[in-house]
Every structure is written in structure tokens, then in C-alpha cells.
Nucleic acid binder design. Structure first.
Lengths: 271, 271
DNA sequence: CTCCATCAGAGAGCAGTGCTCTCGTTCCAG
DNA sequence: CTGGAACGAGAGCACTGCTCTCTGATGGAG
């Protein structure tokens, strides 16, 4: 019966999974050399010693292959960011792997018990350095995998659709950043950031709804500023990778360090 | 002799220029519907009632057509930004249309006389509102021409090359922003922004070199922060257009207003 | 005015693409 | 053992960017 396909791995299934992996590996290899739109189904098949039509048994279209690569890349970037922050509460993101329907009720009842209590002391103390480490990890991954980064944060190739499977992996980096901020806030290490430009009531409502859906305790101004820092980080990395910085600050190592420090200060992280 | 081709416009040249315009218009139309990599030379030719090979008399390759569209788009965006700031000193950017070689000496001797004197009073007073207006114009243009924006700030299609012809048009938006800041500084309306995270000496040297090449009088921290604001602005607009903001702050009108206000504060622009 | 070099367009063609369909073969469960 | 599902190969369709050759037309030089 069909429970074979979910519970057991037949020989066919195993070789199939292996072939899927090989196809993605070869596609990634081509991606790294020729770029996203240079990826050719026929070339992938050719390199793997098969004929192009056989490829369509595994990926029904070029778009589906690209989507698989996108998900893998989001996960790799997310893993790099998480690895750069060993102190993070990695249970926070785990129980929301698949984003539930918006109409669905809050699911923080599923939160594991060990996360219910107060945060262990010390996790918010080095929040600034954790923040910087995560930012550096994002940039380092992007520079190491420029074409995959471009696949994620460059122009959406056709008419920007965001497949449901990509939103959870895409959320990993911002979740790491917000986790650092949450720890810093819980430890009382966030400087007050309540100066004149306040979030408008609609924006405050938006970010509060966002904080609630993420089960995060952060005041609206901090969260709104975190979004600014998030967009700045990726805007800066994109500009560096896409050559927009040549002629101004290139190489941009020092600018990057300065920027992430300024954005850390913006969200209230003090040394 | 050949001076005809540089000094006069023969009938042939005029009809040729007209056809070049029509080709670019049709290409832009296709760009707006099918996206950048959906642009087909054959389809453009077909729509114009000619055969594809005839197109190559005007653009020797698809890349060349795309480059022309990129330059036009940079210019359109730059014009939109400049139009949003009528108070700007539009002579500043004019005399550096073509970026000179880096080895070449300073060219501020060519600066027109009327810009030598002190800035007229009043231009720095509304610097905050000018700044916000320019930011809004950038976002509005991007939302009105998403595919052209993606062409400019999305992934560089092959292996990111930046043709020399594109760097001057690409610099128009940052120049407008810096012009506002320069006026604000000259009018003494820039709040002091010398707090703990300082630009490192190498970064300070970079931005000072940049300021000198742009003939701008701005302290290094302000310029470095302006670069942060610049990358944040385009990072935010890109995230909005490329669907990275869905699920967090979408629609992002209020977030945008908050962000440009915060970044204005970062560079020292007070209300 | 004539001449002829330059230019513009048409058409065929090459090599490549994504994708579909059909046709034997292989594998594995019942 | 057998029937059906999965699989790979091959041919083929419609499309792409681009090159080459050939034919007219344009318009400046003499």
C-alpha cells in the first residue's frame, strides 16, 4: 500500500532520492558557473549521462528545479546564520517549521516546556556580539555563494511568485536576528529606543501582530527598527554583490562593520 | 566626410534614431509584461513588423539592447528623484556626467561660477522634507516600473559586469540624496551625529576620498551614514517589490514612512 | 545627372533551449 | 508469475539568439 512511500524506503525510492540529490548538485554546479538563467535542463542531463526527457521524471519543469534550489539555498543560508549564533534558543524556530494558515489560532501551546520558563541568565549579555556575528555570517555566505544568493534576493525571474514552501526557510535568518533581540530584551540589555520618530499606529499594529504570531516579546519600536536593520543588511549585501558599491566603498569590509554596528545601535544593542 | 555623422543629422540618421526609439519602446513594453528574461529579440522584431535579423542592425546583441534599457531606466529613476527635489542645486551633478578616469586630476576647476559662492539661504531649511520626498519618489518609480527596477537592482543576469555607460546614470539618485545632505550641512541644519560607533580609519579615508571626488563638504560620519541610508532605502524597496515583506509588513506604506524618517534621523536630519 | 558604396531589410539556416509524446525495458508488489 | 508502475531513450515541436548571404534602396561624390 501507499504507506510504503511514507514509512519505508524501497530500493527504488532510495535510488530515486539519490538521483534527485545528484541532479540538484549538478544544477548547483552549473548555477555557480553560468548563473541562474544559464541553468539548462539539457546540460544538467547531459552532464549526468542521461537524456533530457528523463530529467522530467524528477522535476516536472525547470521552475520546479529552481524552486528546489531556492529552498535549499534558503536553508543553507539560514543554517549558516544559526551556526553563527550558538547561544540562540534553537527551539523557538523549530516548532513553526510550516507556517500555519493565518486564520488558524495561536499555536504557542505547542511550545516545548523548557522554553516556557525565564531565559537562562547570560544569553542576553553578549547580544551585541551575537548580532554582529549573525550579520557577518550572512555576508560571508552570500560572498561564498553569490549566484545562489542572487537566486534568493535578486529579481524573481518570471512574475514574482513566492511558493509556500519557501517562506519558512526564508524566515530563518530574520528569526535568528529577532531571537538575539528577544534575548537582549529579556535580559534588560536593550537601550531605550523611544525617540521622536515613532512608528505610526498602523505600523505599530502590524509589528505587534507580527510579534504575536512569532511569540516574541519586543516593543513595537524595537521590532520596527529591527525590520529596518534587516532590510539594510540585505540591501548592503546585495549592493556589494551586484556591483552597486564600486566607486564608493569598495572593498566594503569596513563599511559593512560600521553599518552593522550602527544598525545594532539603532535597535538598542549597546556594547 | 565623416564630420557629417557627428555634427549633422542626415535623413538616414533621423529615421535610424526613430527606429532605435521604437525598438526600445517595444522592448520596454515586453519587459513590463513578461519580465527581463522574457524579452525576445524575435518577438520585438515581430511586433514591429520586421524580421529578427534586421534588429541586429540597431543592437548587435540582446545584451546591448538590455544595456540600453538599463541606462534609460537609470536615467528615468534619476530624473524622478531629481524632480522630487526642485530645490536642489542641479548644477552640481551636471558637470560630472561622464566619470573621468580615477588617475585623472581633480576636475572641480570646471565647476561653474554660480556654484562657487555660498549656498543661497533657505535651501537647507527643509532638508528633512526634501530627503523624504526623494525617498518617496524612488519608491513610487520602483512600484510603477517594477520590471525595470528589477533590471537595475535585481541580479545582474550573467556575471555582473557594469558597463561604463551605466555608472553615471546610476549615480544620479545617490547624488540627489547627497545634495540634500550637503545643503543641510551647509545651512548648519544637520544635528551632530558623533556618537560611539565611529567609522574606522580606513572607512573614513574611503568616504573622504569619495566626498572629495564628488566635491562635497560632509564629515565622514555623515557620509558613511548616508551610505547606510542609501542601502537601506533600496534594500527596503527591493524587499517590497520582490515579495520578501509578505507576512511581515505588507502593505508597507507605513513601514516605509517610518524607515525613511529613521534613516533621516540617522544622517542627522531633524524636523 | 550617373555611379557605386553603404546601408537596410528579407530569408535561410545553425545550434541551442524547454517540454511533450511515444515506445520499449526494468523493477517490484500482489 | 504476472500486471502495472516507474523509468530511460529518442524523436519531435515550437521557440530562442545569432550569422550569413542576397536583394533593393538611399544618397553623397564626381
Amino acid at each position: 500500500m501507499f504507506w510504503h512511500t511514507v514509512a519505508m524506503a524501497t530500493a527504488r525510492d532510495r535510488v530515486r532520492a539519490e538521483l534527485v540529490r545528484e541532479i540538484k548538485d549538478e544544477a548547483r554546479r552549473q548555477l555557480a558557473t553560468t548563473g541562474a538563467d544559464g541553468l539548462s535542463m539539457r546540460a544538467v542531463a547531459r552532464e549526468l549521462g542521461m537524456v533530457s526527457s528523463a530529467l522530467y521524471r524528477y522535476f516536472t519543469s525547470r521552475d520546479e528545479l529552481l524552486t528546489a534550489l531556492i529552498i535549499d539555498a534558503y536553508d543553507a543560508l539560514g543554517a549558516a546564520a544559526e551556526a553563527a549564533d550558538p547561544a540562540r534558543d534553537d527551539a523557538r524556530g523549530r516548532d513553526r517549521a510550516q507556517g500555519p494558515d493565518h486564520a488558524q489560532g495561536p499555536d504557542h501551546a505547542q511550545r516545548p516546556d523548557h522554553a516556557q520558563g525565564p531565559h537562562p541568565v547570560g544569553r542576553g549579555d553578549d547580544a551585541l556580539e551575537r548580532w554582529r556575528a549573525v550579520c557577518r555570517a550572512v555576508r560571508a555566505w552570500a560572498r561564498a555563494h553569490p549566484h545562489e544568493y542572487a537566486l534568493l534576493y535578486g529579481s524573481p525571474v518570471p512574475g514574482y511568485r513566492a511558493p509556500q514552501d519557501t517562506i519558512a526557510p526564508a524566515a530563518r535568518v530574520p528569526l535568528v536576528l529577532l531571537g538575539v533581540l528577544g534575548d537582549g530584551w529579556a535580559a534588560g540589555r536593550l537601550a531605550p529606543v523611544f525617540e521622536p520618530p515613532y512608528p505610526s499606529p498602523p505600523l505599530a499594529a502590524q509589528v505587534e501582530r507580527l510579534a504575536a504570531s512569532l511569540d516574541l516579546e519586543l516593543p513595537a519600536p524595537v521590532l520596527a527598527r529591527a525590520l529596518i536593520a534587516w532590510t539594510q543588511l540585505f540591501g548592503m549585501v546585495s549592493f556589494e554583490l551586484f556591483g552597486q558599491l564600486v566607486g564608493s566603498v569598495d572593498p566594503s569590509d569596513d563599511f559593512f562593520e560600521y553599518a552593522i554596528g550602527e544598525m545594532a545601535a539603532l535597535v538598542g544593542l549597546s556594547g
